[in-house]
Amino acid sequence: MYTLHPETPDDWWEVENLYDTCFAPGRTALSSYRLREGVEPVRGLCVVARDADGILGAAIRYWPVMVGHWHCLLLGPIAVHPTAQGEGLGSALMRDTLERAREAGHERVILVGDEPYYSRFGFVRLNGVDMPPPTNPDRILGVALVDGAWDGVKGSVSRCETTEG
C-alpha cells in the first residue's frame, strides 16, 4: 500500500535518484530540462508515493512555463520505481496532481510524451505549440483543466519564473 505525500526539500535527492534509475543520468540533456534549470518546481504539485516503510515508489513534478504569453504547467518527470511498476502508482499520481492543479486554479498542463498513454488522462496533441528542439512535435501534449483553456493558445514554450495559472 502506497500513500501520496507532497514532495519536501528533504525528498529532493531521493527523487533525483529515482529519476536517474528510471531514465538514466543522461535525462538532463533533454530539451525540457532547459525549461527547468534554475526554476523552482511548483511545490504543491510535486508529489511522492511511499510505501508503509517509507520507501519511495514513485514521484511526479510540475514546473511553470509559458506558451507564448500564456502561463502553463510543464508536467514531468513522472517515474515509478521498477519494483513498483504495474501497481497503478503512475495513474494515481497523474489523477491526484491534475486535480490538485485544477483546485489551485491552474488552467492548462503540457508535457512531452506518448499520446496513447496520456490520452486516458485527457491529454491531446497540441498544434501550434513548439517545444525547444529536438522535441518531436507529435509528442507535445496538453490537457485543459478549465474548459477551453487551450483554445487559441499557440507559440513557443519558454521558461517562467512564476507559478500563476
Rank of each mutant, 00 (worst) to 15 (best):
Thr21Cys: 15
Cys22Gly: 04
Ala24His: 07
Ser31Phe: 00
Arg34Ser: 14
Arg34Glu: 06
Arg34Leu: 11
Arg34Phe: 01
Arg34Asp: 03
Leu35Ser: 05
Leu35Ala: 10
Gly38Cys: 10
Gly38Lys: 15
Val42Ile: 15
Arg43Glu: 07
Gly44Pro: 13
Leu45Phe: 10
Cys46Ser: 15
Asp51Lys: 13
Ile55Phe: 13
Ile55Leu: 12
Gly57Trp: 15
Ala59Tyr: 07
Ala59Asp: 09
Arg61Asp: 04
Trp63Arg: 13
Pro64His: 10
Pro64Cys: 11
Val65Asp: 08
Val67Asn: 06
His69Lys: 13
Leu74Ala: 05
Leu74His: 04
Pro77Met: 11
Ile78Ala: 08
Val80Gly: 07
His81Gln: 04
Thr83Lys: 14
Ala84Trp: 12
Ala84Tyr: 13
Gln85Met: 04
Gln85Phe: 06
Gly86Asn: 09
Ser91Ile: 05
Ala92Gln: 12
Met94Asp: 03
Arg95His: 05
Arg95Pro: 04
Asp96Glu: 14
Thr97Gln: 03
Leu98Met: 09
Leu98Pro: 02
Leu98His: 04
Glu99Pro: 01
Ala101Thr: 01
Ala101His: 00
Glu103Met: 02
Ala104Ile: 00
Ala104Asn: 00
His106Arg: 09
His106Asn: 06
Glu107Arg: 15
Glu107Pro: 00
Arg108Glu: 00
Leu111Ile: 06
Leu111Cys: 07
Val112Lys: 01
Val112Trp: 02
Asp114Ile: 00
Pro116Gly: 07
Tyr117Phe: 12
Tyr118Ser: 02
Tyr118His: 11
Tyr118Ile: 06
Ser119Met: 12
Arg120Gln: 11
Arg120Tyr: 07
Arg120Val: 12
Arg120Glu: 09
Phe121Ala: 08
Phe121Ile: 04
Gly122Glu: 12
Phe123His: 13
Phe123Ser: 10
Val124Gly: 15
Gly128Ile: 08
Val129Asn: 08
